[in-house]
Amino acid sequence: MSNTFQKQILPWLLPFVVLIVWQVVSMLEVVSPSLFPAPTAVLESFYDLVVSGTLAEHIQISLYRAFVGLLIGGSIGLLLGILNGWSKWSFFTFDTSIQMVRNIPHLALLPLAIVWLGIGETSKIFLVALGVMFPIYINTLHGIRSVDRGYVEMGRMYGLRGWQLFRHVYLPGALPSIFVGLRYALGVMWLTLIVAETIATSDGLGYLAMNARQFMQTDIIIVTIIIYALFGKLADMIAQVGEKNALRWHPNYRK
């Protein structure tokens, strides 16, 4: 019973308390309802957006941008991390340049991305890809370079070389760090998408929020914020499930 409470009920206790406090504050009209609408008003706006099909349309576009950017940026970051972690020549050739680019706030490149790539999908996907690439790169590089040398030597004693050595020793040893990078990158993905969709666009959840701001529709703005939070939590849960399945052999991930 205590284990069920700890894993399934306790994580949702604080959001539930916040919801109750929010409803009470709104009912007492401590703040103007136009600035801080009640949860019931937010729920009503959510229902209207769902029924009209507007919400599904914007969500579909945002998810496309997010996961295409994640696929592109994550793949590049993973490959560069593996390459630089595996090869000293590659590390000394590319890592310094990558670190210099990494320290440039990628959201500051938004105006330049619009000039270069226009206001279409390409600029938004580019920013998301750039944002997620570096967390995955850093953690993959760290994971590859942190593999116990004793395991590497043992693998070589068993005749493992090249791809076989990487597959059976380096990759399993680096997976915990790679998944940490993935989970961090998922947060950066949503953050980047929010900013990219609030500038020079006509669709997506960010546009929905900015359009609602112009008409002082605070309830719709809160709906988009909650949806972003739920998608972020869902993405992290999926990453956790993948992490547990991929690392079932690891003693720290066993029940």
Rank of each mutant, 00 (worst) to 15 (best):
N3V: 14
I9C: 05
L19E: 11
L19G: 10
I20C: 10
V25H: 07
M27R: 14
P33H: 03
T40C: 09
A41V: 15
E44A: 14
S45A: 15
F46Y: 14
F46D: 12
L49C: 06
S52C: 13
T54P: 08
R65C: 02
L70P: 00
G74Q: 07
G77R: 00
L78K: 11
L83D: 07
G85E: 03
W89R: 13
W89Q: 13
F91Y: 12
F92Y: 14
D95R: 10
R102A: 06
R102E: 03
I104L: 13
I114C: 12
V115Q: 12
E121H: 12
K124F: 00
I125L: 00
I125A: 02
A129G: 09
F134Q: 07
P135S: 08
L141I: 08
R145L: 10
S146F: 06
M154I: 15
G155K: 01
Y158K: 08
G181Q: 08
G181Y: 06
L182K: 06
L191K: 05
L191W: 03
L193F: 10
A196S: 13
E197Y: 06
A200F: 09
S202I: 11
D203R: 13
G206N: 01
A209P: 04
R213K: 11
I222W: 01
T224L: 07
I226V: 15
I227D: 11
D236H: 02
M237Y: 13
E243N: 14
K244D: 13
N245K: 12
L247S: 02
Y253P: 02
Y253F: 15
